[in-house]
Design a binder for these strands. Structure first.
Lengths: 147, 147
DNA sequence: GTCATTTTGGATATTAATATCTTAATTTAC
DNA sequence: GTAAATTAAGATATTAATATCCAAAATGAC
């Protein structure tokens, strides 16, 4: 929707790592299995995350990946930018007009700008620690409901 | 961003029609040229718009297309839904979790819901008449600036 | 040092969106 | 009625995203 499926996979993998921060390393295949992500595809994403220093990876037997900094210090937006690349310098016009800036704005420009900013704030405020905590809670809620 | 490039093209074409409502018909090729849209590609989109009764099309010499109702009564969201299809019944989770509803929500669910609603409102409020008016104004502004 | 394991990296495949090309059907002008 | 113009429709091509496959490099276990 606002980011690629690749970025979505990456976010899921990072949540997994945040949830398992106590374990020294996690195998990519384990995460792929857990979230139903194509293993080899996730491997590539993981390489990108490593290049952006969001995770550390270790090869060979007992190898795996882990977060490169505290979950609290990793924001969703960091992951998205790492995978999808940063947003373009010149923001695209929502209805595709060539000329659309704050000065000469298309009819949707200002409203759309606010929405974009809201998205940016949402993804910028949300850190992995909080995400992981909430997801654990959610899982407990679910278990409570179904039993 | 929130809709496909096809939908963007369709919106542009509809704006053109709204701007030229006084003319009885407009050729698809004319619009394609004006907005730099691949002609044959736009032709297909136009067919879809016609099937959704947003425009009327006329074949043969002196043929062309025109809006099927007053520009005021056509909203951007109508065009987007016509081209991209309506939104899915079960909204997808932003971070791709299988289970994510109002009851059992992912950490971003509620905030994201608000943003989605804002987008829906923006595209639902914006009608073609207003769009066309504003774009004409914008064009005049531009002309005033550059001369 | 050999072997199993795991990430890395490159090559290839599939799919969906976008784009192009060609022919058919329709309508009007003459 | 014939020719020109225009949309309709189907076939094909290109591109980008997603997915799969296979060999290489690295690491630890023995």
């Amino acid at each position: 929707m606002i980011y690629s499926k690749s970025a979505e996979y990456a976010i899921q993998a990072m949540i997994y790592l945040a949830e398992h921060q106590d374990e020294p390393k996690t195998m990519v295949s384990k995460i792929a299995e857990e979230y139903n992500i194509p293993v080899h595809f996730l491997s590539k994403l993981v390489q990108t995350l490593a290049k952006h220093h969001l995770i550390k990876s270790y090869r060979g037997r007992n190898g795996g990946i882990k977060l490169n900094k505290p979950a609290r210090d990793i924001r969703v937006i960091d992951i998205v930018y790492a995978i999808d690349g940063p947003p373009p310098e010149i923001e695209m016009c929502v209805i595709g007009l060539d000329e659309c800036t704050d000065n000469v704005a298309c009819p949707l420009h200002n409203n759309w700008k606010i929405i974009k900013e809201n998205i940016r704030v949402l993804l910028g405020h949300e850190n992995l620690e909080h995400l992981a905590e909430e997801i654990i809670k959610k899982r407990e809620d679910l278990r409570g409901e179904t039993i």
